[in-house]
Design a protein around this nucleic acid. Structure first.
Lengths: 356, 356
DNA sequence: CTGAAAGCGCTTACAG
DNA sequence: CTGAAAGCGCTTACAG
C-alpha cells in the first residue's frame, strides 16, 4: 500500500494531490468542501489523484487554519450511573451528522480536575462544550469559556441563570409530580434520597419539588426523611437501611435516581419488606434496568436521548454564529417533558410498620 | 477581563507573550514544555507576561506543528451496557496523567459508520486508537490504521492474531470456569446466552469455553441451549422465556453479560421460577448492578478499570516509539485475570422441571 | 541559557 | 470555474 511507502518519507498532502491532478491546492480543497463549485471533469481528475496518491485529509491542519476546531467537549463528574449512556448516544448521533467529534472529559467530582478540564478544552479551542453536570463552584469557569467565545450548553436542568444556554427538564415539577403521585396513593411519610443539595442546581430543584408537593398536601416536612447521597446503588441501599430502621420509618421512598432506587430495593428485601406492599419505592431517570428490577421500578422518564440531541444541536447552532452580538439576542433554553412511568414498585401504604 | 478584549481583535499568541517578556517565542515554548531549560528569572518574567496578556496556549497549533495529535480515540459499537463505564474511566484516568484527551466514537453496530469513524480518526491524526469491540469485518480497517502509523490496541480479548496489540482477558477460560462451576453444582443442562458468535472473537471464545467445559465433563452439547442475542436486558428476558418454556428446559443459564442476566432474572420471576431454587442464572462482567439484583448475581468479575488503564498505557507506549522497526520487535499482549464472584443466583438443580 | 528561521498543511479572500 | 499568496501559531533543529 502507498500509505506504508509514503510513511517513511513524508505524508501525501494536498499539494501533492494538486500536482498530480494539475490543479492548485485551492481547487483540491474545494473538491473536499464544496464540490459543487468545481467543474465535473476537474473534480473527477482530483478524485483520481487522491486515490492514486493515497491522500488522507489532514483535519488537524484544517482546524488550525480555520482557527476553529470541529470537536465538541462533554464535561461530566463521572461516566458511571448518573450520566445516561443514552444521553451521550444522542449527542454523538447529532454530532456525527454534522461531522463533529466528541471529547469526553471526566472530572471525577474533583474541582481541580474540573478546572484542568476546562483549561484543556480552551487550549484545544473546542467548537463548544456540553456540561452534563455542573456544580455551582464550576459555573464561573463555564462563564469564562463563554466569554472566550466557546459556546457552553448546560444540560439536565433549566438554569436559574437565564443568560445560560440550557437544554433540560423541569426538575422541580418532575419531583413534585412524583411526590404527588405517592401522596395520591395515600402516603403521608415520604422519604427523599437524592444527591448533594447544596452543590447541584438540579438536585436542589428536585428537593424543592418534593417539598412543595408535601406542603401543598398539608403534610409536614420532616428533615429526618431526606438524605443526601452520591447516586450509586450502594449508597441507596445504605440510606434505605437507615430509613427503614429509624424510629418512625417512611411508607414510601422517592429515590432521585434509579441507581439509588436499585439499592433501595435491595435494602428493603434484606430487611424483609415486601415492595410495594410494605414500602413503596420510586426512582428517577427510567434507566435501562428500571423495567427489570424486582419489582419493576416506577420512575420518572427523562428523555435523555432527545436531550443529548438537542444539546448537540444547540452547540452547533452557536458555533455557526460565533459573533457575540448575536448571542446577546437571547439564551437558548429548551425544556423537555418528563413523565411518570408507573410500574410495580409503588402502592398504597400498609398499616404495618415493621414486616414480620 | 482581557480575554474579552482580545477576542474582538486577535487572540494573544506566543509571539505576543515573547514581546512582552522580551524573549523569543522559542523560549516561551520552552517555559511551557521544559521549564528546567530556562533560567529562573527569565521563566518568571515569561509567566508574568502570560498572566498579563491572558495568554491561552493553542494546543491545536502545537499538535499541527508536531504532526502528532495528543488525542486518543476509542471505538465502540455502543455506549450502552456492554462497554463498562469503569473501562472508560480507567482509560481517562491514565490519559489525563499523560495529558492526552479521549475522543469516543460510536459505530452503533453499523459497519459503514465504523469505517467512517476510522477515516475520521485517521484524518485527525490521533495519537492512537483503543478498540473496545471489533468485529472480524473491521479488523482490516484497524490493520490499515496500524500501517498508517497509528497504534491500535484491541481490548477485552486476547486476539488470535498474535501481531495485534491487545489488553484483555482469557474469555475461553473465564467461560469454561463458570460452566465448570455450574457443572460442579450438579447441573447437566446448562444454557448459554451470548452475543453473535460469528462476528466477535471474544464471544466466540466464551462459546468455546462453555463447550469445552461441557465436553470435559462428558456432557452432551445441545445446540438448542445456546442462543445469540444483543447483550441487553430485554433480549436476555426474551431468550430466557423461550428457554424456560421449551420442551426440555435447562436447569442453569449462563448469560455471557450481566445485562442479559438481569433480563434472565426478570423472565424467571415472571414464569414463576424461583432463582436459584428452580433455576440457576449466572452473568459475566460483574457490573455495578450485579450485587443488587434479586437475587444478587453470581458472575465473572472482569477487571475493567485495570483493563482501561493498561490499554491507555499501551497506546502511549506505542505513540512514544513510533518507529515501525521497534514495533516489529513484538506485539503488546497483556492478559488480565478474571474470577468467579459467587453470590446467590446459582445453586444445585431442583428435580422439579416446572414450578407450581 | 537563548534566538533566528524554516516549516507543518491547510483555508480564505481576492483576482481574473 | 480556478489560481497565487498570505497566514494561522506553534516546534524544532541549529547556532551561538
Amino acid at each position: 500500500m502507498s500509505q506504508r511507502d509514503t510513511q517513511q518519507s513524508r505524508r501525501v498532502n494536498m499539494q501533492d494531490v494538486a500536482r498530480v491532478a494539475e490543479v492548485s491546492k485551492a481547487t483540491v480543497s474545494r473538491v473536499i468542501h464544496s464540490p459543487e463549485l468545481v467543474k465535473e471533469s476537474t473534480r473527477r481528475r482530483i478524485h483520481e489523484a487522491m486515490e492514486q496518491t493515497g491522500y488522507v485529509y489532514n483535519a488537524v491542519a484544517a482546524d488550525f487554519t480555520r482557527q476553529r476546531n470541529s470537536i465538541v467537549g462533554l464535561i461530566a463528574f463521572t461516566l458511571r450511573g448518573s450520566i445516561q449512556s443514552d444521553f451521550i448516544e444522542g449527542i454523538q448521533e447529532t454530532l456525527d451528522l454534522h461531522r463533529y467529534s466528541l471529547i469526553i472529559g471526566n472530572s471525577r467530582y474533583d474541582p481541580a480536575t474540573e478546572r484542568e478540564l476546562i483549561r484543556v478544552f480552551r487550549e484545544r479551542q473546542l467548537a463548544g462544550i456540553i456540561a452534563a453536570e455542573c456544580t455551582d463552584d464550576n459555573r464561573p469557569a463555564l462563564q469564562a469559556l463563554r466569554d472566550a467565545g466557546i459556546p457552553t450548553i448546560l444540560t439536565w436542568e433549566l438554569t436559574e441563570d437565564l443568560a445560560q444556554d440550557c437544554v433540560g427538564i423541569d426538575n422541580t415539577r418532575a419531583a413534585r409530580e412524583m411526590t404527588e403521585y405517592l401522596i395520591g396513593l395515600g402516603h403521608r411519610r415520604i422519604a427523599l434520597i437524592a444527591g448533594r443539595y447544596e452543590r447541584i442546581e438540579r438536585v436542589r430543584h428536585r428537593f424543592q419539588g418534593y417539598r412543595s408537593a408535601l406542603e401543598a398536601a398539608g403534610l409536614e416536612f420532616d428533615p429526618a426523611l431526606t438524605v443526601s447521597r452520591t447516586p450509586t446503588a450502594l449508597e441507596g441501599k445504605l440510606a434505605t437501611s437507615e430509613l427503614l430502621t429509624s424510629p418512625n420509618p417512611p411508607t414510601a421512598i422517592f429515590a432521585a435516581s434509579d441507581a439509588l432506587a436499585l439499592g433501595a430495593l435491595a435494602a428493603a428485601r434484606e430487611h424483609g419488606f415486601d415492595v410495594p406492599r410494605d414500602i413503596s419505592i420510586s426512582g428517577f431517570d427510567d434507566s435501562d434496568f428500571a423495567p427489570f428490577c424486582h419489582p419493576p421500578l416506577t420512575t420518572v422518564r427523562v428523555p435523555t436521548l432527545e436531550m443529548g440531541k438537542r444539546a448537540a444541536q444547540a452547540v452547533i447552532k452557536r458555533e455557526l454564529v460565533p459573533s457575540r452580538s448575536e448571542w446577546d439576542s437571547g439564551a437558548i433554553r429548551i425544556a423537555l417533558d418528563t413523565e411518570i412511568v408507573v410500574r410495580n414498585s409503588c402502592g398504597p401504604p400498609s398499616r404495618r410498620v415493621r414486616p414480620s
